[in-house]
Write a protein that binds this DNA or RNA. Structure first.
Lengths: 192, 192
DNA sequence: AGTTTGACAGACGGATCGTTCCGTCACAAA
DNA sequence: TTTGTGACGGAACGATCCGTCTGTCAAACT
């Protein structure tokens, strides 16, 4: 039989787990399902990720990293700090409108693992804190008088759009959030 | 041994389950735990709620009903429609600041049971839709030109505050949401 | 007082959970 | 070719899941 490299297996397992965990939730997906879906023996998975918690943590960390990668790339296409902030909500509106949208992985993880000790929980919390800090830094760049306030407000809009779009119509609330963000940013920015 | 009435048992079971489900999540709490915490045999529970799904649904329905009851009471103390809208966010700010705050039960349920068929999922979705409809009705009463838009925006703020306060500092984001709501409502209302 | 009733606690069942263990097989070194 | 190494699939493990069953005992009725 064809032999896969360890790295190849690692990526494949994480890819499959990411899809299943995101679609159904981490607690709802058993390791048996991941094993079956991967088409490998379970020892292959447990060698790459020693526990389910470790696999779940890798999943959340991967989504958190991917979020910043995509957002910073989108923001990079804009020259002004205000435009960079807006870019985030434009990407968001695109995401929530998709047919496979199922909420924000980090928010979902926070409700699935509310205990402070769980490693996946920590990754989720840290991610949201980093998003807030990034918003704040961009607000400072834009010369906003109260960058803390704008950062907090934008974080509320962001999470609110993610959460609401997961419950009701995704496209609608992505657009509403986009308009809200524009309103707040325009109001906060000193330059006309 | 002292005998409890059926109604008494029913309330006690739901009370215990509500606490456990809210603190730890529905999937994280086994029926054995509910049984032990209630201090009764499991048959007593299964007589009142034939399945765990039924108990979970009763939990979510109870929280949804309690939400409207509290909010409508708080709103009733204000004479203007705009004041009634604001009352919601004042109560919200109080809730998220509490030490036992653990997120919005309906949002949490939506991520724990993303499948469309689950009864608890349906209750959660319906609740958020009803909140939006209520916001819209109040916006109409207030003479807002675009009540749909204000209702959607306030729903984003509401869910955003609930979600963000569950991840980061609850008191901070409850206050931020309160100010955001005031801004949107003042801007939308035609009377100065 | 004797009898019936039904709510009760807890033992129990099959299923599934996450995890460990084991025999096998492909490949590299000797 | 022989030997050694380690990744592999899959069986098997104990724990826990949700839900049923059974025997007991208190209360209500005759």
């Amino acid at each position: 039989m064809a032999r896969r490299s360890g790295e190849e297996n690692r990526r494949n397992v994480l890819e499959v787990a990411t899809r299943l965990f995101y679609e159904q939730g981490i607690r709802a997906v058993g390791m048996d399902t991941v094993v079956k879906e991967c088409g490998v023996g379970n020892a292959t998975i447990y060698r790459q990720y020693p526990t389910k918690d470790a696999l779940a943590t890798a999943y959340v960390q991967g989504r958190a990293d991917a979020w910043f990668e995509r957002m910073e790339q989108a923001a990079g296409e804009s020259s002004s700090p205000a435009g960079r902030l807006m870019a985030v909500f434009e990407v968001l509106a695109g995401d929530t409108a998709g047919p496979t949208y199922r909420g924000c992985p980090m928010l979902n993880t926070n409700t699935e693992f509310p205990e402070g000790g769980h490693p996946a929980h920590l990754v989720a919390v840290e991610h949201k804190q980093q998003v807030r800090d990034w918003f704040r830094a961009l607000a400072v760049d834009a010369g906003v008088p109260d960058p803390d306030r704008l950062a907090d407000e934008l974080l509320i809009i962001l999470n609110g759009a993610y959460a609401t779009a997961a419950v009701l119509d995704g496209a609608t609330y992505g657009q509403r959030a986009l308009h809200l963000a524009r309103l707040l940013i325009d109001n906060a920015c000193p330059n006309p």
